[in-house]
Design a protein around this nucleic acid. Structure first.
Lengths: 106, 106
DNA sequence: TTGACATGATACCTTTTGGTATTATATTTA
DNA sequence: TAAATATAATACCAAAAGGTATCATGTCAA
């Protein structure tokens, strides 16, 4: 599972891919829909999606001739697990994040 | 500050650099000490440290002819901020992390 | 001061990465 | 069925990344 962690971190290293993740957080999208949002070819976007898929961050569902790209809810797991390793350093940060979330959920 | 986020994510994309971060979490180390832990030259380790520094994840303190590399406590800030954007998706994950931390602090 | 030590800087090489262009395949739809 | 649509796959290219070797610089110690 070490490989999965590496692939996930690698997937997040590119700004375009992080943007794709944010877009897919609001709704599932086809390659064509995603490509509209960027200044690059569909082939380039497809490559990014492959990297995101390798990282376990998205899944693809075939719907007729379309393919719906969907964020994988558990995809960030390995990444967040890695961060949780630094309790003594990041506890404060994580607590801030926690509090922000709690504030919103009220 | 968009640049800082990118540099931090980029810094974390390499497994050697993540290992360096983990090593520095336990104690500050010189390049020579870090190099002992890896199968590569000092120059290569130095490059990784430069990337980590660019990402704001470490700072360097000159001590005589040595340079002590130290983890920057707030360095992960931009990265964790980015993750906090996905409340609706990652809340559960973050809550699990939060609970694990709370359990430990008891 | 001279030599050893710790690091910095640079040139160079190979592989990976991010992108395009092009061609192929599968699915609708007129 | 034929044309249009949505995507996949491949070859190719320039730039960035990760590494080594080598040389330069600054500091400590005899």
């Amino acid at each position: 599972m070490r490989e999965q962690t590496q692939n996930a971190f690698r997937a997040l290293a590119d700004p375009t891919r992080r943007d794709i993740v944010q877009l897919l957080a609001s709704q599932d999208m086809t390659i064509a829909q995603l490509t509209e949002q960027f200044d690059m070819t569909r082939a380039a976007v497809k490559k990014h999606l492959t990297v995101l898929s390798d990282g376990g961050l998205i899944t693809v569902e075939a719907r007729g001739r379309e393919r719906l790209n969907r964020l994988e809810p558990n995809g960030m797991g390995p990444v967040l697990d890695w961060f949780s390793y630094f309790d003594q350093f990041w506890d404060d940060r994580l607590n801030n994040l926690k509090e922000a979330i709690e504030r919103k959920s009220k």
